[in-house]
């Protein structure tokens, strides 16, 4: 006889990171991210705590609050490449565009550009208010940081980072990064091969 109870079951076993004390907005993932951002909802978050649980239990991997978010952004710039961030992410704006131009610009930009700019704005505001207030898209960008922090321990990771910088390969590269990190967290030796 087995007990049926959700609390006894790992809902998401060890392999991926998540957050605690966080908003509960349904956030679309992958391509749907942009449509999620249109909702424009901000949520007060005490902190974002990512963890990767191993067969021996959960290990906190990353914790971000209003006092550390600027450093986290800088680390993300470092991991993705400062030049890439400056050229493709930080120059992005829809200000002054009409609906059609904005739509076109959004479709032609790097998928991370919109969420990135918004995260930077929300981070600045959070520092001013001494309270972390983030939209789902911003939380998602910070989760990417958590994946990247662990990805750099895997031989051959540079190929995935390069793909993350390419607009058309960004989402598949995110998935590959998460998969690699998951097998790595599960205690296996992982090597990312050349294409």
């Amino acid at each position: 006889m087995y007990d049926i109870e959700a609390d006894n079951m790992p809902q998401n076993k060890n392999h991926f990171s998540g957050t605690q004390n966080c908003s509960q907005e349904a956030m679309p993932y992958g391509q749907g991210l942009l449509s999620g951002l249109e909702a424009g909802q901000l949520t007060v978050v005490k902190c974002i705590r990512c963890f990767a649980s191993t067969p021996r239990g959960a290990n906190a991997m990353m914790e971000i609050d209003h006092s550390s978010i600027a450093a986290s952004l800088d680390e993300l710039r470092q991991l993705l490449g400062r030049e890439f961030c400056k050229e493709q992410l930080e120059s992005y704006t829809l200000i002054g565009t009409n609906f059609f131009d904005g739509n076109r610009l959004e479709a032609q930009s790097h998928p991370l550009a919109g969420p990135w700019v918004r995260l930077c704005q929300e981070a600045e505001q959070s520092v001013r208010d001494e309270c972390l207030e983030l939209s789902p898209g911003s939380i998602w960008v910070l989760l990417l940081l958590d994946v990247l922090q662990r990805l750099v321990a895997i031989p051959g990771y540079e190929r995935i980072v390069e793909l993350l910088r390419q607009r058309d390969h960004f989402y598949p590269a995110c998935f590959e990064a998460q998969t690699a990190v998951s097998y790595h967290d599960a205690g296996y030796s992982v090597e990312i091969l050349e294409e």
């Binding site: 991926f16 998540g18 004390n21 907005e25 993932y29 789902p136």
Partner: peptide, 19 residues
């Protein structure tokens, strides 16, 4: 086959991301 989204009724001690 894999899909991911943010869980809209997560508890404090569980992953927000639902894979």
């Amino acid at each position: 086959l894999c899909g991911a989204s943010i869980r809209n009724n997560s508890k404090p001690d569980e992953n927000l991301i639902n894979f």
